[in-house]
Simulated assay, not measured.
Amino acid sequence: MTVSRTVQFEVSEEVAEFLHRKVESGAFPDEGAVVQHALEEATEVDAEFERWVQKQVLPTLERIDREGWNGISVDEARAELARRRLARQSAA
């Protein structure tokens, strides 16, 4: 069973209007439900981001630390993209 408690906070007029529109649309029973839903969504996004960092980013950084960087510089990447863009435009 989820335990809940009441909290109070101020929001901008713009946010208040957004909350009101969500309730008026019938999507939520009250403003608190809108806020609750938004916070639950934000929590899930944060968790997904953390999983991505743990699974993809950290192993890549560890590999780079072990093996060194074998990639290209930003300037080289930009030059290659410009070359490809020019080739596409010439072919069109």
Rank of each mutant, 00 (worst) to 15 (best):
E50R: 12
R21Q: 11
L86V: 10
A47P: 09
W52D: 00
L39C: 14
T6W: 01
V45N: 07
I64S: 05
Q8Y: 15
L61Q: 03
V15P: 01
A16R: 15
R83C: 08
G68S: 05
V23C: 00
R84L: 10
F49M: 11
K55H: 14
E40H: 04
E31N: 09
E24M: 04
F49L: 13
E41M: 09
W52F: 04
A79K: 03
G32I: 04
V7D: 03
S73H: 14
L39V: 14
A16D: 05
E80R: 07
S25L: 07
A16Y: 00
V7I: 11
R78F: 12
V34R: 08
S25T: 02
A38W: 10
F18P: 09
R85H: 05
V53M: 11
A79Q: 10
H37D: 15
V57P: 03
Q8E: 10
E44P: 03
E80Y: 00
A38E: 12
V35D: 05
R63F: 10
E62I: 06
K55W: 08
Q36S: 15
T60I: 11
A79D: 04
V74H: 09
T43F: 12
D65V: 11
R63K: 12
A77G: 09
G26I: 00
Q56C: 15
H20C: 15
E67T: 07
V45S: 07
A27N: 14
E67S: 06
E41P: 00
H37A: 06
E40G: 02
G32D: 11
R84D: 02
P59A: 02
E48W: 05
Q8K: 13
F9R: 10
V23H: 06
A33R: 04
L39W: 07
E67W: 13
Q56T: 10
D75C: 03
A42G: 01
K55R: 12
W52K: 07
A47G: 10
E41N: 08
V7N: 01
R84F: 09
R66A: 12
L81I: 04
F9H: 02
D46F: 03
K55P: 14
F49A: 11
L86Y: 11
E40L: 06
A42R: 08
V35A: 06
Q36T: 12
E40R: 06
L61C: 09
G68H: 00
Q56W: 08
S73G: 15
A82L: 15
F9L: 14
V23R: 00
A27H: 07
D46C: 07
R83P: 10
R51K: 15
T6N: 06
D46W: 06
V74K: 13
E31T: 07
H37T: 10
L61T: 00
